[in-house]
Design a protein around this nucleic acid. Structure first.
Lengths: 125, 125
DNA sequence: TAAACTGTTATAAGATGGCTATAACAGACA
DNA sequence: TGTCTGTTATAGCCATCTTATAACAGTTTA
């Protein structure tokens, strides 16, 4: 499992961790039913506090990416809430597209970039 | 000028303000050379502190959306730093696409949603 | 010239969030 | 029993967000 944390980034540690795990799930590095490392173990590996990892797991649970089992720890379990996902997606994209449009990035370039990302991460479903 | 601030949102006020102004630029509500309201005036209109508006303007300046003139206040002036913009765009999209992919949103649906947003905001260049 | 407006800067204070540290608890398992 | 889970509580430190008050220098207008 490859987790890379940038301690110089202004993005919160627990959010970096969350994003990397989501990327891991999307690229099938983690699959439905797989366990994530225990909070203590992962914290030790990365070199951060246990509670920071715990916070990332809690967020992933709230967002429907994992379920937590007292026996097996955090387990990948996707909860597909399609409506909520689409609403969030729409809001996120609005800001991004507005920013891009201001900077003269065209609609076609956006489409192309998306295809590029899908090809880079061949694992994306 | 329509600025809507959600005081219950967990997004910082100055970021909400920044996003709405960027959306305004993208939809040609503001055009190159137009002035934004003065920090004091806009703060008064919205009902927030002057410094919060000032912070939004400062961020917009750093990100290359406005320039500040002591005489005319904040003026829309897009600085097109194509490389930097594309790098940021790529990072933002990676996270969004990974999240969507986990939730079974397909590549085609992403493309369709983008076109939808472009049509909703007819003004997008 | 004087008044009213710009952005800018400084300082302070309160609230919230991020991160760490230490500690303890209940349940699962060998 | 000892060791591993997640969970909870408390505390402290630091950075960020927001507000408040105040002042300064330059610009515009009456």
């Amino acid at each position: 499992m490859f987790i890379e944390i940038d301690f110089n980034s202004d993005e919160a540690l627990y959010l970096q961790l969350r994003n990397q795990i989501i990327l891991g799930i999307a690229t099938s590095q983690f699959q439905e039913g797989d366990s994530l490392p225990s909070v203590r173990q992962l914290a030790d590996t990365i070199g951060i506090n246990m509670h920071t990892v715990n916070k990332a797991y809690t967020v992933l649970k709230q967002e429907g990416f994992v379920k937590v089992d007292r026996r097996k720890g955090a387990i990948i379990a996707i909860d597909i809430d399609r409506i909520r996902t689409m609403e969030e997606l729409r809001k996120d994209l609005q800001v991004i597209l507005a920013k891009s449009s201001c900077k003269n990035i065209t609609r076609d370039e956006i489409h192309a970039l998306i295809d590029e990302i899908y090809e880079d991460y061949g694992g994306l479903k």
